[in-house]
Computed example of a mutant assay.
Amino acid sequence: MKDNFQICSRCIYDSRVPNISFDEEGVCNYCHQVTGLEETFKTGTPEGEAELQKIFAQIKEESKNKKYDCIVGVSGGTDSSYLLIKALEWGLRPLAVHYDNTWNSAIATENIRKVTSTLNVDLYTYVVDNKEADDIFRSFLLAGVPEFDASTDLGFVQTLRKAAAKYNVKYILEGHSFREEGVSPIGKNYFDGMYVKSIHDKYGKVKMKTYPLMTFFQFMKWTLFYRQKYIRPLWYINYTKADAKKVLKEKTGWEDYGGHHLENRSAAYVHTLYLPHKFKMDMRNLALAALARTGGMPREEALLKYNSPIEEPEGLEEYVKKRLNISDEEYVKIMNGPQRSFRDFKTYKKRFERLRPMFYLLAKVNIIPRSFYLKYCFPIK
Rank of each mutant, 00 (worst) to 15 (best):
S266M: 13
E39H: 12
L275P: 07
T45Q: 03
F279S: 12
S266D: 13
E317L: 04
S198H: 03
Q53D: 15
T109H: 07
V365Y: 08
K166L: 13
F156G: 03
F56Y: 12
A289F: 01
L84H: 04
Q339M: 14
H32F: 13
K333A: 14
T159V: 11
E47A: 14
H200R: 06
K162L: 13
K221V: 06
I85R: 07
P18R: 06
L141I: 04
S80K: 04
P233H: 09
Y236R: 11
A292N: 08
V72K: 04
E174H: 12
I12A: 13
F56W: 10
K2L: 14
A50I: 00
T210L: 02
R293F: 10
G258Q: 12
V17T: 15
G296C: 03
L361C: 08
L84R: 09
K305F: 11
I334Y: 13
M335D: 07
D134H: 00
S15K: 06
F5G: 03
K42M: 02
F216Q: 00
F279K: 04
V74I: 15
S266G: 08
E24H: 11
K67S: 11
P212T: 07
R293I: 10
G26E: 02
Y68P: 08
C28Q: 04
L224D: 15
N120A: 14
M283I: 09
G144I: 05
I55S: 02
D14I: 01
V206Y: 01
N189I: 00
E181S: 11
K197T: 01
W222Y: 15
R284L: 10
K67T: 14
L262E: 07
F56A: 09
L355I: 04
A150M: 00
D256Q: 08
Y373H: 11
Y348W: 07
C70M: 07
Q158F: 02
Y348C: 07
E250P: 01
E353M: 13
K221S: 13
D3T: 05
E301F: 00
R293C: 06
I112E: 00
I136S: 03
A163I: 10
D328E: 15
A57G: 05
K207V: 05
K166R: 15
L37E: 05
V27N: 09
T45C: 08
V365L: 05
I237Q: 09
Y230E: 12
N65V: 03
R356Y: 02
A363H: 04
C28F: 00
T294A: 13
G144P: 07
K205R: 12
R299M: 05
Y236V: 09
I172A: 11
S308D: 02
Y82L: 06
R354F: 10
N130T: 09
G76L: 06
L234G: 06
E49K: 14
N104E: 14
Y30G: 09
T152E: 14
G175W: 01
Y203N: 07
G77V: 00
T210A: 07
Y376H: 14
C377R: 04
I231R: 03
F41Q: 03
R356C: 07
L224C: 09
D134W: 01
I136A: 01
F156P: 01
Y195M: 04
V121Y: 09
K249G: 13
E181M: 07
K251E: 15
